[in-house]
């Protein structure tokens, strides 16, 4: 059997990214939508780590550290916004939030 090569990692990264993208488009619950963007970030992180190993340099890994910390701060912000919204109107369904049209 063949060894695990770079494109295997890239494929998994792309699949994670795709799952996240499809989930973001189809899910209506705000928390689920946010988790979908997190899945997309993880796909990117996997790409970066695989490339980092492939090129044998640490830039990709340090990129991942920064990416994860930004993702964490975005998660904090997302939870804050979701709580704010839930207090105003007892639902997290994205379709219920459509005051503005046009």
């Amino acid at each position: 059997m063949s060894q695990i090569e770079l494109y295997h990692y890239l494929a998994v990264g792309a699949i994670l990214f795709g799952i996240g993208l499809v989930g973001f488009m189809t899910r209506r619950n705000l928390i689920m939508m946010f988790l979908c963007t997190e899945i997309m970030f993880q796909g990117v992180a996997l790409n970066l780590i695989a490339f980092s190993r492939f090129h044998m340099n640490p830039a990709g890994q340090s990129f991942v550290i920064f990416l994860l910390s930004i993702a964490a701060s975005e998660a904090a912000l997302a939870l804050g916004l979701v709580v704010l919204l839930f207090r105003r109107r007892e639902t997290l369904n994205a379709d219920e939030w459509s005051e503005m049209q046009g």
């Binding site: 993208l21 939508m33 997309m40 990117v44 790409n47």
Partner: peptide, 26 residues
């Protein structure tokens, strides 16, 4: 409503350009 819309789509856009960045790095 605007803030949440802006934030969620912003996170999505960030994921998209980061995916591009990862390929450029690769």
């Amino acid at each position: 409503e605007a803030g949440v819309k802006y934030f969620f789509l912003g996170a999505l856009a960030a994921a998209i350009f980061l995916f591009g960045f990862s390929y450029l790095y690769g």
